[in-house]
Structure formats: C-alpha cells, structure tokens
C-alpha cells in the first residue's frame, strides 16, 4: 500500500511542479511581443541546384512567394500586446496591420488580415531570435524558414 501511495504522490508532484514551471517561465505569447527584424529567408530542407546544396531563397523567388501571401515582404514586424501586428516596410512606413494569435501549445502563429488567414510554425522563440516555418505549396520546394532578430 505504501508503494502505491508513493506513486500517487509522484503524479501529484509532477502536476504541482508543472504549475510552478508555468508560472515562472514566459509563455510564447509574452515572448513574441516586441519588434523583430527579418534576417533571412531560406529553405528548411536542402535544395540541390546543379548538384550543389542551395538553401538561400533569391529575391525573385521571395517576391513570387510573397505575392501569394497575406504577409507581404516587410523587414520589420512589430507585435503589440493587443494582438496587433504592425508590419513596417522597407521605406520605414507602416505597410499593413494584422491580428495575431499564438495557438496549439504555443507553436503556431496565426496571422489574420483582410486577405485571409495564415499559419506559421514557431520553431524557435527566445528573447533574441525567432524562427518561423511556412509551408507553401506553389512550385517552391520544401518549407520556408524565416529568421528574425529582436530589435526592440
């Protein structure tokens, strides 16, 4: 009976520790708040061009991908606490404003604009770096990996 009691205590202990961890660690919803600058776009999987590994996405390819997206190519993304995402274009002007939500276990970034809804997978989210994956099925091969660094 005592051995079983220990197992019950282990389960309750795990549950209590989980609540403590959740109260101490920042949630992805909090971490994402702030201003992020796009650093690079590349393929997540290796792309072979003339027998050589090619990960980088060229400007032309980027333009083609972006033309079909709600998210147009804007180098700065500003996430506000009110679930608004301000996208700032290359000229420094506000390009567009969208709604954002983090879903799942904190691994999906959903962006809603007038043109529709897009879901990005949050692969990495720290205080300094954010990596998003976007699965796009035009003639583009593989998953697109978007890397950002925090600037504010």
């Amino acid at each position: 009976m005592m051995k079983i009691a220990y197992w019950y205590m282990v389960v309750v202990g795990i549950a209590l520790s989980s609540f403590i961890v959740l109260s101490k660690v920042d949630s992805p919803e909090t971490l994402i708040n702030g201003t992020w600058q796009e650093v690079e776009w590349e393929y997540e999987k290796v792309n072979y061009v003339d027998g050589k590994k090619e990960l980088t996405i060229t400007g032309e390819q980027k333009k083609e991908i972006c033309s079909k997206l709600v998210i147009h190519h804007d180098p700065v993304w500003h996430f506000t606490g009110q679930n608004r995402l301000l996208k700032i274009g290359e000229t420094g002007k506000n390009a567009e404003e969208l709604n954002w939500n983090v879903k799942g276990r904190g691994h999906i970034l959903e962006l809603k604009g007038t043109e529709g809804v897009e879901d990005y997978q949050i692969v990495e989210l720290t205080r300094d770096r954010m990596v998003l994956y976007f699965n796009f099925d035009l003639q583009i091969r593989g998953i697109i990996k978007m890397t950002f660094k925090r600037i504010g």
Binding site: V11, I14, A15, S18, F19, V21, L22, V25, D26, S27, P28, R105, G106, H107, E124, L125
Partner: peptide, 18 residues
C-alpha cells in the same frame, strides 16, 4: 520540446498528458 529547451511548451504538453 525538452530537447529544444522549450520548458513552457514541454510543461503544457505534460499537463495535457496528465
């Protein structure tokens, strides 16, 4: 999530399992 060091997500998933 544990391997990636995402403690928040790992804890959420652990609670779901529980």
């Amino acid at each position: 999530e544990i391997a990636k060091g995402n403690w928040y997500q790992a804890t959420v998933v652990l609670l779901w399992i529980l």
